[in-house]
Computed example of a mutant assay.
Amino acid sequence: MLGWLVLGVSALVVGIAKTSIGGVAALPVAGFATFLPAKESTAAVLLLLIVGDVIAVRLYRRGADWAMLRRLLPAVLPGIVLGALLINVVDDRTMTLVIAGCILAALSVQLWLRLRPAAALPNPGHPHLAATIGAGTAAGFTTMVANAAGPVMAVYLLAARVDKLRFVGTNAWFFLLVNVSKVPFSAGLGLFPPATLQLTLVLVPVVLVGAWIGRRVLRAVDQRLFELLTVTAALVAAAALLTRAALTG
């Protein structure tokens, strides 16, 4: 019963994340990984995320920064390949620790940028090419391993000082394109058994409700609160993943 409750809430948060505060997408990752094997949980979350991505693109497609996406997307594929290789060779506990470490690293960068914005980001609207390549590769890796690229993209977009509507629009197109491209890799790894597909079908309506809630949340919060919630959600998700790894160690 508790497991279904957590999975239901996680699916609700997927919808909220896709239409408002993208950083909270790390929370469903932790929720699914708590009650499902980590590798299988990635496939279940992936399918729900794609449902949310389609809704988000439908709502916010005009807000996307395509110049930023064109710079970012080519660096994602190497990260996806590395992530697929990692899934093949590590156990669930190690993978959980890797994802938690990536989230914490992204948060560290975000805090540093907040403390030294002038030195760290001389041209806010156009992040340095090295930062773009690093963010794209990190996003590809973390999204393939456990659908945890939300914090990486949140750090990158917040560092670029995009407003909340451009944030959501760019996020929507980025993750739709990336998540669809991950499906063949996940299928090749055998992560789509019938039980996973059945679970996804049951939870799709919950994602739709979350998307409806998320759209209203985005209208209600200002930019400062939006950024605070994004960072806080990523921190909570990292703590949950580290706790899970400690309990299974």
Rank of each mutant, 00 (worst) to 15 (best):
L225T: 13
R61S: 15
L97H: 02
V90T: 15
V178C: 12
A106S: 15
V236E: 03
L113Q: 12
R71D: 10
S108I: 08
Y156A: 05
T19I: 06
V202K: 10
I103A: 12
D65R: 15
E227C: 00
V109G: 08
K18I: 06
I99D: 06
G210R: 05
L157Q: 13
A135L: 09
F167G: 00
G214I: 05
G136A: 09
L72T: 15
L247A: 15
A246Q: 13
A139L: 13
L49C: 01
L201P: 13
P194R: 14
N88P: 00
V81T: 02
S186H: 10
A245K: 03
V89Y: 03
R116M: 10
V90R: 13
A160P: 11
I21C: 10
V231A: 13
H126S: 02
I213N: 13
Q223N: 01
L77Q: 01
F175P: 05
I133N: 06
A119D: 12
A195Q: 11
V45S: 03
S108E: 08
L2F: 11
V180N: 11
V206L: 12
G83H: 02
N123K: 06
L229K: 14
A195Y: 03
I133A: 09
K18T: 10
L197C: 06
G125A: 12
V29Q: 03
R216K: 14
L191T: 09
L113H: 09
V180T: 15
L165F: 10
V51Q: 03
T142Y: 04
A234S: 08
T232N: 10
V202R: 10
A139G: 01
R161Q: 15
P74Q: 15
A246T: 05
T96M: 08
A220L: 04
S20T: 05
T19P: 03
P37G: 12
L46N: 10
R58C: 08
G22F: 12
A11W: 01
P184M: 08
V204C: 03
A25Y: 07
A234Q: 12
A120V: 09
H128V: 01
G169V: 01
M95G: 15
A135D: 05
L59F: 13
A130C: 05
V13S: 07
R116C: 07
V209K: 00
R116K: 12
L241R: 00
M1G: 15
L208S: 07
W212H: 11
T42N: 14
L7V: 14
D91G: 06
G134P: 11
L48P: 08
A239E: 02
V29E: 06
I50C: 01
A131G: 11
V51S: 13
S186A: 00
D65A: 14
N88G: 07
A154K: 00
P193G: 07
N147L: 05
V57F: 14
T34H: 06
G52T: 09
R58M: 05
A211W: 00
T196D: 08
R93H: 07
G214H: 12
V180E: 07
S108L: 12
V206D: 09
R58K: 13
L189Q: 10
L36F: 14
E40I: 06
V162D: 08
I50A: 04
L189S: 02
K39Q: 15
G188V: 08
G134I: 07
A149W: 00
A154D: 09
L111E: 14
A138F: 08
M95C: 14
L36E: 06
L129D: 09
R116F: 04
V236Q: 03
T137Y: 00
L197I: 11
